[in-house]
Design a binder for these strands. Structure first.
Lengths: 222, 222
DNA sequence: GTATGATTATATCAGTCGTTTGATTAAAGG
DNA sequence: CCTTTAATCAAACGACTGATATAATCATAC
C-alpha cells in the first residue's frame, strides 16, 4: 500500500469524523476503521491525535485562505487607488467557503461543517488552531473594510467584523446536504449575494445612541 | 447530605464542565470529582449521562426562554394594534442572554458559553435538544419580526432570522470573562444596543439583485 | 424503638481510549 | 544479492469510560 494512499485515507476519514463528531467524540480506531488502515499507522504518519487534527485542519484551511487573500488582492487591484467596495471585500471573504460546496459536493459540505464548528469546538486546541489560521488574514480583511467604511469608528468595525465572522461560522456549521445548498448548487451564489447584502447593511449601520449610564432602564426606543 | 444539595452540586459542576469541554469531552468522574459527590449519585439522581445533560440544559434554557417570551409579549402589548418596532423585538430576543452575564457574573459567562456552543456541539443529541428548546420560540419571534418588516419577503426573513441566531450564538460562544464583558458589566447594555443596530440594519437590507443564471460570473457590483 | 424508603459509598463490569513496542513486510539503494 | 530504510501489523500497556450491583448509612414516619 503506497504511503500517499494510507495518509490520504486517514486524512479523509478523519476529516469526515472530526466534522461529524468533534475531536473528543472521534476515536482513532473509528478513523482507522473507516480508512481501512492499521491503528499504528496514525502514529507513524502523523504522531499524536492532535497532530492528526493539525494536519486535517491545515490541508483544508491553507488553500482556502490563500484563495481568500488572492480574491482580496484582486478586488484591491481593480479598485486602484480608491478603496474597494465593501460588497466586493465581503464577497472575497465569504465566497471561498461557500464555493467549496459547489465545487467539492459532499466533501465540500463536510469541510464547511468542520470549519464552522472548529471555532466553537469544545476542545481548546481546536479553537486555538482555528484562530491561529485566521488571525493575520482577519486583520488584513479588517483593514480593507476600514478603508471602505472610513466613517465607522475603528473599534466598532473591529467588533462588527467579529459579527461577520460569527455569521459565516454559523452558516458553515449549519450546512446540510438535504437543504438548499445541496439541492441546487447554483444557489450558492444567491446565498452569497444575500449574505453580503445582510452583512454590508449591518456594517454600514449608524452607530446607536450612546448609552446613558445614570438613567434607569427604558422600554422602547423608536 | 440533603438531596437538593447533591443534585445542585452535580448540576453546577456539569454545567461548568460541559461548557468548557463539551459533552464527549466531559466524563462523569470529572463531574463528580468537581461536585465532591459519589459517582453513583449521578445515576441515582439523573439516570444516564445524557439525562444529566438534559437536566443541565433545561434548567438553563427554560427560564431564559420564559423571560424572552415575556419581553416579547410586553413589547407587543405596548405597541397595541401597531406592529412593534424591530429594534424592540430584537432586544427581547437577545437581552435575556446578555443580561445573564451582568446578573450572574461568572456563572453567567459559563452559561452563555454553554448556550452558544450547544448549537454546534458535535454530539448530535446536544444539538437536537438545543433546537427543541428554541423551535417554537423562534417561530414566535419570526412572526413578530415579519409584522415589523412587512416589505421583506417571508422566505428571506426566515433565512435572515437564522443569521440573527447565528450572530447571537457566536457572541455567546465567544464570551470571555477577561474581555469587554467581564470588565465592565454596564457594557452589556451597550453591547446589546450595538448588536441590535447591526442586526436591524441587516434585516432591513434591500434584497440583492436577482441572480442571472445564464450570465458568466461578474466582478464588482457597485 | 422499628420499618421503610431515600441516598450514598464502594467495587466491579465490559468496554474503549491513545500510545508504544517489536516483529514483519515492502521498497529502495548499493 | 544484501543492507538499509520506510511502512505496516498485531499485541499490549496503562488509563479511562458509563453503567450497574450491592451493602451501608441516613432520614423520616409511626
Amino acid at each position: 500500500m503506497a504511503d500517499t494512499d494510507t495518509k490520504e485515507r486517514i486524512l479523509d476519514a478523519a476529516e469526515r469524523l472530526f466534522a461529524a463528531h468533534g475531536f473528543a467524540g472521534t476515536s482513532l480506531r473509528a478513523v482507522t476503521r473507516e480508512a481501512g488502515v492499521n491503528l499504528a499507522a496514525v502514529h507513524y504518519h502523523f504522531g499524536t491525535k492532535e497532530d492528526l487534527l493539525r494536519a486535517v485542519l491545515g490541508r483544508i484551511v491553507i488553500p482556502i485562505n490563500r484563495e481568500r487573500l488572492a480574491m482580496l488582492e484582486q478586488v484591491e487591484a481593480e479598485a486602484g487607488s480608491d478603496p474597494p467596495s465593501l460588497e466586493a471585500i465581503l464577497e472575497a471573504f465569504i465566497a471561498p467557503d461557500l464555493r467549496l460546496i459547489r465545487d467539492l459536493g459532499e466533501r465540500g459540505v463536510i469541510i464547511t461543517r468542520f470549519l464552522g464548528r472548529s471555532y466553537t469546538e469544545p476542545a481548546e486546541m481546536v479553537q486555538a488552531l482555528s484562530r491561529e489560521h485566521y488571525e493575520e488574514l482577519g486583520q488584513r480583511f479588517m483593514e480593507a473594510i476600514a478603508r471602505a467604511l472610513p466613517e465607522v469608528p475603528r473599534t466598532e468595525l473591529y467588533w462588527r467584523f467579529k459579527l461577520v465572522v460569527g455569521v459565516l461560522t454559523y452558516i458553515l456549521a449549519d450546512t446540510d446536504p438535504t437543504g438548499a445548498y445541496g439541492e441546487d448548487l447554483s444557489d450558492v451564489d444567491g446565498t452569497l449575494r444575500r449574505l453580503v447584502a445582510f452583512l454590508a447593511a449591518g456594517l454600514r449601520a449608524p452607530m446607536p445612541e450612546a448609552q446613558r449610564r445614570d438613567q434607569p432602564e427604558e422600554g422602547a426606543s423608536s
